[in-house]
Simulated assay, not measured.
Amino acid sequence: MDVCEIIAWCKEKNVALENAVVLSNVPLDITDIVVYRMLDTVKGTAIIGIPDEIGPWPTQVLSATSPSSGSSKGEEFHTKLMSFLQHEGKSLADLQNVASPALTLNTELVSAINSLVQKCQATSPVEAKNYRKLCTFSGLTPTPNGEEDNEVWAEHTTYILEEWQCSDNVKKQRLMEYLRGHTVDIVRFAKVENPSATSCDYLKALDTAFGPTDNVSDLMLKFRNTFQGKGEMLSVYIIKLDKLLYSVLRKGGLKSSALNCLSIGQIIQGARPDDMAL
């Protein structure tokens, strides 16, 4: 039986782990009487004083770091720890011998280590998780089936890049997966010109090649002079403003953190005062 099975057996038989001592490598032909006689040699010894071996058989004390019965996470960690030690041919005494004298392997320490392991597992594989995908983009005109035109693709991609919770290197790799034809060459040229180019730099290069010819100043002037038309729904007006701001963002004219503030300011100035939605 491995340690997991032993702990499960103890629970099934209502045997407290505090009273459990595991003997390993006991031959099958050894009778219970012989085992009891060997155990009698250490009878009355405190549980923490159980020797590493009783006769020729290695011992393991389950209760040395046993967590409380109400701590399922601690029990899981304890079970894995005991299995690992058994696989390595070690005991808890070996682990305690290499620990700092001031450090006791108690329930709080087990819980702290288990919590740290869970946090590492939760954060390390983030970049491998599923992520919202992009549409392919070739920059061709007319737009091929299954693709989006530059304005729609660029706006959507800018938003998705901000949403992806991963490093910029991963963002660049993912972005390249959806580029086709001449767009790949444009990004490669941008990388050669600037080896430290970011994913935003890649988008700027693509927007320069396929986007509107307006510069940042022209776009901001157009944004400041865009007002809600008579009979125009407020939601439609807001979308128009957002598109202009994202065009400025793609050209590097502002930071994403300024989008909301600028949009709200222009909505207040440019929306019709008689619009009930406002």
Score class of each variant (00 low, 15 high):
Ala205Lys: 02
Ser196Leu: 15
Val184Gln: 09
Glu18Asp: 14
Thr104Pro: 00
Gln86Pro: 00
Glu108Leu: 11
Leu244Ser: 11
Thr45Ala: 10
Glu76Pro: 01
Glu163Ser: 08
Gly211Pro: 04
Tyr246Trp: 06
Gly253His: 04
Pro58Glu: 00
Leu85Glu: 02
Val184Ala: 05
Glu155Thr: 13
Gln173Lys: 02
Thr157Met: 01
Leu116Phe: 08
Asp242His: 08
Glu127Ser: 12
Gln173Val: 03
Met82Pro: 01
Pro273Val: 15
His87Tyr: 00
Arg250His: 01
Thr183Lys: 05
Arg180Cys: 12
Leu203Ala: 02
Glu148Lys: 15
Leu206Tyr: 05
Val248Ser: 06
Leu95Asn: 03
Thr158Asn: 10
Thr123Cys: 03
Lys222Gly: 09
Cys10Met: 11
Ala122Asp: 14
Arg188Phe: 12
Val21Tyr: 00
Cys200Asp: 07
Met220Asp: 04
Asp275Glu: 11
Asn106Cys: 03
Leu95His: 06
Met220Ala: 04
Thr123Val: 05
Ala205Glu: 06
Val187Tyr: 06
Lys222Tyr: 04
Val3Met: 08
Ser217Thr: 08
Asn169Cys: 05
Val21Lys: 00
Ala271Cys: 13
Phe227His: 13
Val192Ile: 13
Ala209Val: 07
Ala190Pro: 04
Pro101Asn: 11
Arg250Ile: 06
Leu116Met: 09
Asp32Ala: 15
Val21Phe: 00
Phe137Ile: 08
Ala209Glu: 14
Ile50Asp: 02
Cys4Val: 10
Gln121Lys: 14
Met276Ile: 08
Pro58Phe: 00
Asp207Tyr: 07
Asp242Lys: 13
Arg132Asp: 11
Thr226Phe: 03
Leu221Tyr: 07
Leu103Gln: 14
Glu163Ile: 05
Asn114Trp: 01
Leu161Gly: 05
Phe77Leu: 11
Leu234Thr: 04
Lys191Met: 13
Lys204Thr: 15
Ser71Trp: 04
Leu39Arg: 09
Ile6Pro: 02
Tyr36Phe: 14
Thr59Pro: 01
Phe84Cys: 03
Lys172Ala: 08
Ile113His: 01
Pro67Arg: 06
Glu88Val: 00
Leu28Arg: 09
Val117Tyr: 08
Val192Met: 06
Met220Gly: 04
Pro195Met: 10
Lys11Gly: 10
Gly265Cys: 13
Asp2His: 06
Ile238Ser: 09
Asp52Leu: 00
Leu262Ser: 07
Ala99Trp: 03
Ser247Phe: 00
